[in-house]
Design a protein around this nucleic acid. Structure first.
Length: 714
DNA sequence: ATAGGGTTAG
């Protein structure tokens, strides 16, 4: 017998210090009194059962071969299973193929192995081969293959296997039925899942959990909670899987009290120490924008894994605490034994993208290269997005062209990047190239191309692509697409066409559609239609601050200050707040964020003088404050002062003071930039001989020598 | 030998 390698030791987690020599198998704790009858197979098998890492499995494998036991079907099956469990499907296949008389168990192990490794097509293929050699799948084979149909959306195949099961008159089996519930749940057929569930003669916790998670996954969270109550009435013990399903049921509910209730349940059922439960709870609070509560749970975790760290990172990023996100990421890198993965890198990359932090983004890109993740397509699309969002289309393009593998998301990111910069023709070219390279456009592609056409005023092109994609790519247009087309038509002034599209499309118009129409009304001065749309929006969602603002802005444009006041008062009486506008600028790798009128900003003393000087200089060059941009009834002096303190101007003034002459100034704004700031930026670029890049919520504006890249069309 | 759970981009 060959000696096992010393590395074998550390894979025995349950044994403190096994002495490893050829006697190990015989000394193994699971070794029982029948050792004399069949000593070797049992010891090999029991070791295989406990070992979860590739190397010791290979050792045992070699040992089996050298002991002349390779034809033992029981051992070969176990070996196939061990390889499958640690993801080595090639080795599993290898062992499987050497079994001369494969039985149902051998086939089932291989099928379940592929399914567990999410190789569903392979799993189905093995099942097909199994049937061709005239072996009938048993109840375990069936429960192993069902998830494959669910995950692949293979509705027909799943149903036919379900029929096969019934036709063959197998006795009811809780595993198969639970797997059927899971399959129908993944396919989105909550009704079919419930039918199976109701027909079960025996139900265990797993079956209840599967049904509850089905409801929460299909968006029927309340039904999930109702089922949970029945489950408790019937006396079933709640485990952490139940809690996980309830958490995901509650994360769809806006009312955070539901989430808090589940948090309480978690504590009462003693599963609050589970790592996954904690992470899921963090997610509930993150979704409810209660980042401090999430942070509390995070800090309370005795062991923080990379997922928890990453979730916290994206929480800071989504809350626009960008510096905190960067700080958190740096902290994360210092944690010992915490390996960064592509998800973590993608998280920080998209944070850099959202904040316009180009230097930080470059650092993360370098880190991605160093850690070998630079070719991950997920991270790749985030890298493209980051360069493009930081007004660096050239680097986005360079990276994109160097990519070995591009998926549809990478193409979409590149198309949208061109669109945001106003390069409509390039965006359309990319779209055509994408089709030539064999990548199928998806629903987002259509959005990206339509936006690009819209920004560039390419109405006919846009309409053509819309109709073409719907006809030949069988893309079913959704509300987002209609909003893009409304925008496309509205921007160039075809308000009538836009309006009749809104009335004839097969959906009730939503926020995006009305907003597209409304902004067209604003651009083209159709106040009457604008007020009509604003009121519709207002009725749609009377508790959203955004709609009050829109309505009041429309009244302001019409000069109806009475109505403006009414809208503002009702806004305040409901205690609603609108999202404040802010602009950020990155200087020496640090982000500075300014809010409009924020005179208590730590850098305000530094900005104040430069700002005053900047305003005077551009006024000399012909700038006049556009007081119409202030949508409140105030004196012109007060209006001008408000305009001078818009967040973009504060950030630009700060940038002028902190950077060398001729350096490009890049500012990122969370909302759309106003008319006055746009007007002022042209003068600033000319007077101070600077290129100014303003990224607003919509697109890029590159101001150079008094002209903007958007050609005043946004 | 069999079923159910957390993070990321467009």
């Amino acid at each position: 017998m060959k000696r096992l390698s010393p590395g074998f030791n550390r894979y025995f987690s349950h044994r403190k210090s096994p002495t490893l020599n050829s006697n190990t198998f015989h000394n193994h704790p699971s070794f029982t009194s029948n050792q004399r009858a069949q000593p070797k197979p049992i010891s090999h098998a029991s070791i295989l059962q406990q070992v979860k890492h590739p190397n010791p499995i290979k050792q045992v494998h070699a040992n089996i071969v050298t002991s002349g036991l390779s034809q033992n079907i029981f051992l070969s099956n176990r070996l196939t299973n061990s390889y499958s469990l640690c993801g080595l499907m090639e080795d599993a296949e290898h062992v499987f193929h050497r079994i001369s008389d494969k039985n149902t168990v051998s086939w089932t192990i291989l099928i379940s192995g592929y399914a567990k490794n999410h190789l569903f097509i392979e799993a189905i293929e093995v099942l097909r081969k199994m049937i061709t050699v005239s072996l009938l799948p048993n109840e375990i084979t069936i429960s192993s293959i069902l998830p494959a149909f669910g995950n692949m959306g293979l509705n027909q195949m799943g149903r036919s296997v379900h029929c096969f099961w019934i036709r063959n008159g197998f006795a009811t089996n809780v595993f198969v039925e639970t797997a059927l519930v899971g399959m129908y749940s993944k396919l989105g057929f909550a009704g079919a899942a419930r039918q199976v569930f109701d027909g079960m003669s025996e139900r265990n916790v797993v079956a209840w959990n599967a049904m509850i998670s089905c409801y929460s996954g299909c968006g029927f969270g309340e039904e999930g909670f109702r089922l949970f109550n029945s489950m408790r009435r019937e006396g079933f013990h709640v485990d952490c899987f139940t809690i996980m399903s309830l958490i995901s049921a509650s994360s769809g509910v806006e009312d955070l009290r539901v989430g808090e209730g589940v948090h309480g349940l978690t504590v009462r059922n003693g599963v609050e120490s589970d790592q996954l439960v904690k992470t899921a709870l963090m997610d509930v609070y993150v979704n409810g924008k209660r980042i401090e509560d999430a942070y509390f749970i995070f800090n309370d975790m005795p062991v923080k894994d990379v997922v928890a760290w990453t979730l916290m990172l994206t929480a800071f990023s989504s809350g626009q605490y960008w510096n905190k996100a960067i700080e958190h990421f740096n902290e994360m890198r210092r944690v010992e034994d915490l390996e960064l993965d592509s998800v973590a890198l993608t998280g920080i990359m998209s944070s850099c993208s959202d904040s316009g932090a180009l230097h930080q983004g470059r650092r993360v890109h370098a880190l991605a290269i160093k850690t070998g993740f630079a070719h991950d397509v997920f991270l790749g699309s985030a890298i493209i997005d980051m360069y493009a969002n930081c007004a660096n289309l050239e680097d986005a393009r360079k990276y994109f062209e160097g990519m070995e593998e591009k998926d549809v998301a990478c193409w979409n990111a590149m198309i949208v990047s061109n669109g945001m910069n106003g390069y409509g023709n390039d965006a359309v070219d990319l779209f055509l190239q994408m089709k030539c390279s064999g990548i199928n456009p998806d629903e987002s592609t259509l959005v990206c191309v339509l936006c690009a056409c819209s920004h560039a005023g390419m109405v006919d092109q846009g309409l053509h692509i819309f109709h073409h994609m719907v006809r030949t790519w069988n893309i079913v247009p959704n509300l987002r697409h209609y909003a893009c087309v409304v925008d496309l038509l509205g921007r160039v002034g075809r308000l009538g066409d836009a309006y009749s599209l809104v009335n004839s499309m097969p959906f009730h118009p939503d926020f995006d559609v009305y907003c597209a129409l409304l902004s067209a009304c604003k651009i083209h001065g159709n106040i009457e239609l604008g007020i009509e749309i604003s009121e519709k929006l207002f009725q749609l969602e009377p508790n959203d601050a955004g709609y009050y603002i829109l309505l009041s802005n429309m009244y302001a444009l019409a000069g109806n200050w009475e109505c403006v006041k009414m809208a503002r008062v009702s806004l305040r009486s409901k205690g609603l707040k609108k999202d404040p506008g802010f602009s950020s600028i990155e200087i020496d790798g640090e982000l500075y964020t300014f809010m409009a009128g924020q005179k208590d900003h730590p850098q305000y003393f530094e900005v104040e003088g430069i700002l005053k000087c900047m305003i005077v200089r551009i006024q000399e060059a012909g700038y006049v404050p556009d007081t119409k941009s202030v949508l409140q009834e105030l004196s012109d002096d007060v209006k001008s002062d408000m305009l001078y303190h818009h967040s973009e101007k504060l950030a630009i003034a700060f940038g002028l003071g902190r950077t060398k002459p001729e350096t490009t100034i890049r500012v990122t704004k969370n909302l759309r930039t106003c008319n006055d700031c746009h007007f002022a930026c042209k003068f600033i670029s000319k007077v101070f001989k600077r290129v100014i890049v303003v990224k607003d919520a919509n697109r890029f504006h590159v101001f150079r020598e008094g002209v903007c890249s958007c050609r005043d069309y946004w």
